[in-house]
Nucleic acid binder design. Structure first.
Lengths: 243, 243
DNA sequence: CCAAAAGTGTTGACGCTACACCCATGG
DNA sequence: CCATGGGTGTAGCGTCAACACTTTTGG
């Protein structure tokens, strides 16, 4: 049993897209009194302390693998949070004591985010209760997790503009309408359909497949996939990108 | 005397522009034998452990203030480095022992970078020897500092593209040729003078002053300043920017 | 045949690239 | 008067935003 490092944790902001909203995975936190009465319940991000011989990237990967079963999930470190009073809230202190942590022990946390499609993953949460919540209706979270989430979302928007990572939110085969909707949801703006499709047509790494949607009650859409190979071959610079 | 946290440090990648090169500030590290013979000498970034009651942003600010005397230097956290073997190199272990640190103690470091004009700052290095070295001729640094520097430089280029931070490298009043040269040095590319100036003309927050260069042996150049106020009033979105 | 989403072109404004010469000053 | 950098305009091309109708399918 490897030793855990009591001063460093990793928090994973797990973004999930369900073709409708951009969600974040939250873990329910409940504090019960000795008699078993509910004292409070709220939510946290998915996080954990790291092991002593473990890199933080590995720790974040491990947490994600435990949750999803997948090894190769997109993962990005975005910021480190170390305010000395980030655990000062009385609810947080109570809760830390209840699980055997010293609330006066300073913990700094490294924030990661990852992207996945809600429909394509089955969550193995163990005995924790987890849920997907649309990012724009998330309420008050534990600790400084609202701050962490906000910063993650900012960085996500930036990185989605700068490189082809949004495909992590979609299944391998997707329609242009799904792609457009995804960008609209992430950035909370609307695109013109014709202009969007003209732009896609210029991106040679978005390749149309010999396959159409099936079983939909309207004209079936062309399916596309993202080719990382073509992307790597044809990319010029950072500013080549942007949807 | 506040207690230091032995597990967390801050490394500052201090970029300095001297109107010619983009430099990074390095600190000389020398290890002497008991007899006083030189065992080795090389360079590190400027870094330090944090205090127990101190935020990491504050710690980085403090280090910078000690060095420059200024309070309000541009400072950006860019990445955290926590590989368990980042201090495994034998030279680094020797050196840590020589200054009374346990090389087996795990230290994670949070990377910051800051931007300043070499000519406008006087360095208070204490008993350390520091020097400006052009980023593209930096040799082998101590610890994982080459990695930290590379990552800082990447992030710098990104953030310079995304917002008006390059002005931190220049004095308050500067010429367009100085600005152009700065961008050319940072990105290692060349711009066309006329096109560059047309672009600047569209940026209303680059304001021409009623003042020209003096004492130069050629046609004196118009001086400009960057107006943060105008920038804030007129900015649209992230993609509004880019030189 | 109806509902629902897929798919498609043109125009005007603007930003981008490429390119060469005269100007003002100090020495 | 010369060396040095400062300063300027145009043309062609590509990308951008704005805008409305027809097509294909399942029910």
């Amino acid at each position: 049993m490897p030793a855990i490092n009591p001063n460093i944790s990793v928090d994973c902001v797990i973004f999930g897209y369900d073709f409708k909203d951009l969600n974040v995975l939250l873990v329910e936190r409940t504090l019960l009194s000795e008699k078993g009465d509910l004292i409070f319940t709220d939510h946290t991000l998915l996080g954990n302390h790291i092991y002593e011989e473990e890199d933080i990237d590995e720790a974040a990967m491990r947490i994600l693998k435990e949750l999803t079963g997948f090894e190769n999930i997109f993962l990005e470190q975005f910021h480190t949070f170390a305010h000395p009073k980030r655990l000062e809230n009385e609810k947080d202190r109570q809760w830390l004591r209840s699980i055997g942590f010293d609330p006066d022990n300073r913990v700094i946390t490294v924030g990661y985010y990852s992207l996945l499609n809600c429909k394509e993953v089955t969550l193995h949460a163990g005995n924790r209760r987890v849920c997907w919540v649309p990012v724009n209706i998330v309420g008050d979270l534990a600790f400084d997790h609202n701050l962490i989430l906000a910063k993650a979302y900012e960085d996500l928007k930036l990185k989605v503009m700068l490189g082809p990572i949004a495909y992590q939110f979609l299944p391998r085969k997707f329609t242009l309408s799904q792609l457009q909707k995804l960008y609209e949801v992430i950035f909370n703006i609307r695109f013109d359909k014709r202009n969007f499709r003209k732009k896609v047509a210029r991106m040679k790494y978005l390749v149309p497949l010999n396959e159409k949607q099936k079983g939909v009650a309207h004209k079936p859409a062309q399916l596309y996939m993202f080719s990382r190979e073509v992307f790597e071959m044809t990319k010029k610079g950072v500013f080549e990108f942007t949807i």
